[in-house]
Design a binder for these strands. Structure first.
Lengths: 214, 214
DNA sequence: TAGATTGTTAATCGATTAACAATC
DNA sequence: TAGATTGTTAATCGATTAACAATC
């Protein structure tokens, strides 16, 4: 499959399509037209067809899209047909919360270990997955094929840990620290800035309240 | 302050400006030009000036922007000059993780209570904030001024709980459930779909690996 | 075949970048 | 005053929507 230069906007919509198609599949729906799907998702049918056609023609004129087929194909595009081993750095509340999400595993994301600096965490396991100490990390990375590291640690530590991970071959970081990571451009960084999200919410509240005051 | 019709793209960048300005402030930097800030943030100076001028002229020709002033003003735009009471529905790992983020409080987001269905949680407190049972929720909402509800519960429960919250006057929802919420349009919903984020990361890994294979 | 719906081109809309006059 | 840098207009670029011929 060859699809370079697809816009970020399109990519960011794929997981949502995947989610809706998964729901339809569960409901036993066999086929759906871009028009019907557009109504469910509150987007235009045109956008759905444009988005999908970046990756190939998955539909059929006069019929629509086969739900199961499209679901599988989007899964492949998203790389969900392969397993991805990952580790979590920082076994605090958020790290443990991620470790407990069994649903990631169903999508092929396999948690291999957590790491922390707190000695009281040593040997503790979450869903059978052990928490190791940070000083074991380098060796662990050398002996295991790890693709993704989730960073759930304070901002102050995140930058140095990220550098260390990259030095040890990690090529993808899922960053929850409240800071940007400036890493070599072949390293993929996906950040979840929870406080940014909360501030956006707050902005919208303030704006609405202004409107009401009139 | 009057600023309707500002694009979503601009809004989503404000928290990032705020973060960088906060860092500069801590470093003791007094003023910064759009050009210098653009280099730090890896965006164009033009975009910074355009973004800010949606809300007013915060800079001065020949001088640049006063860091402290701009930081404060963006804070006001984001509604961080006021307190926002919130509750967390679902005191599982993620709910507890959010409850433990003291940094939200520093931005004016005050956690008033958590709620859960699990009777073993009853009376447990996080940072002194009690977990209450779901059947106390309606009364609690009537007796307290709550602006925001964070939903950290399974998809299956999220939709009905959201409806109930709205029926009891909640006007802003921070949604962590893996589902979209279709609520009246005066209700603000900000969703954090962790699995979507992970899939985006996975897409980028797959695309890069394809490139390497050649 | 007739009807439905895609894939795709063209038109529109919006967001980003460039340029520069205004001005501190 | 001269230099720097904003605020803002104009130009470009990209993304979304509309339209429709192709085709199942």
């Amino acid at each position: 499959m060859e699809h370079r230069g697809i816009s970020r906007a399109v990519i960011s919509r794929l997981p949502r399509y995947y989610r809706y198609l998964g729901d339809l599949l569960e409901e036993g729906v066999e086929r759906i037209s871009s028009n019907d799907l557009s109504k469910k998702m509150h987007v235009t049918a045109s956008q759905i067809r444009q988005d999908l056609n970046n990756f190939g023609g998955f539909g059929q004129q006069g019929y629509g899209y086969n739900v199961k087929y499209l679901y599988t194909e989007i899964g492949k595009i998203l790389g969900l047909d392969k397993n991805h081993n990952f580790i979590i750095i920082g076994a605090g509340n958020l790290g443990q919360a991620l470790a407990n999400y069994a649903s990631f595993e169903r999508s092929g994301f396999i948690l291999k270990s957590l790491f922390d600096v707190n000695p009281r965490m040593e040997g503790v396991a979450i869903r059978g997955i052990p928490i190791r100490m940070m000083d074991e990390l380098e060796e662990f990375l050398q002996q295991n094929e790890i693709e993704i590291a989730a960073l759930t640690l304070p901002k102050s530590k995140a930058i140095e840990v990220a550098d260390m991970l990259v030095a040890n071959g990690i090529k993808a970081i899922w960053n929850f620290a409240h800071t940007d990571l400036n890493l070599p451009k072949d390293v993929i960084v996906e950040s979840v800035h929870l406080s940014d999200s909360l501030m956006t919410l707050s902005y919208n509240i303030s704006r609405r309240n202004e409107g009401n005051k009139k």
